[in-house]
Design a protein around this nucleic acid. Structure first.
Lengths: 113, 113
DNA sequence: AGACGTACTACGACAGACGTAGTACGTCTG
DNA sequence: CAGACGTACTACGTCTGTCGTAGTACGTCT
């Protein structure tokens, strides 16, 4: 069973989170469920990784947190929304990804080659 | 200028090195030049990163080092060659890469989308 | 009553990448 | 012929992101 190593994901958890926040604000638990769902269970972000990413990104000005009540349950949650800097950062990371992918693939052998 | 962040490469430097050692043994400086050449200057591995990867991989049994004279210059160099475990590891990393790439791309927006 | 899901926070460990520095030797250049 | 530069490392310490462990709190389900 091939598994994704955290060393590869490292540096892209932020991008995943921002990708989800692009359209609308959300909060921790919901984001983690969304990531699991989108990746079809192939990647499950650890809680500590998630919340440390939040505080890092808020410190860097990519996110803003605010308390809000969950629309469905009415419970108080800590929501996060993207800032303009966050959108810019996300777009840059997407460009960086294309380059990184290209470079790494120069050193990868496809199955059967 | 988009640059590759070390957090993404993290965990794939080993794979790059092994990729170069697949066909024939080589030594530090030569490997670093080869990586720079293959990636067309897009990725330049730091010396410390390279040599710490060597000792890590030798400890893990993926590489074996031996002293040998450079065929061109006749100078003594520390050569590294892949073990069977190294080849197995490299193949696994290539498979892992395919999965990782798939997952990350689910969170990446292509230019203009 | 206790398990489980939800929703966090705090603290510390770990590993890989990197910065800085130093050594040594040979070649090239002004 | 002195100094810069390329080659070929080694040693040591720092930083950062991920993750393990643990704890809190509240609601639902069985």
């Amino acid at each position: 069973m091939v598994e994704i190593s955290s060393d590869v994901i490292r540096g892209y958890t932020d991008t995943m989170i921002l990708s989800i926040l692009w359209d609308e604000p959300s909060y921790g638990y919901e984001i983690s469920k969304t990531i699991r769902m989108i990746s079809d269970g192939k990647y499950v972000i650890k809680e500590t990784t998630l919340y440390s990413a939040f505080s890092r990104m808020e410190k860097n000005g990519y996110l803003k947190s605010f308390p809000m009540e969950d629309l469905k349950t009415g419970k108080k949650r800590t929501y996060y929304s993207m800032t303009d800097a966050g959108r810019k950062y996300y777009i840059e990371k997407c460009e960086e990804w294309e380059l990184t992918k290209e470079v790494i693939e120069l050193f990868i052998r496809k199955e059967g080659v």
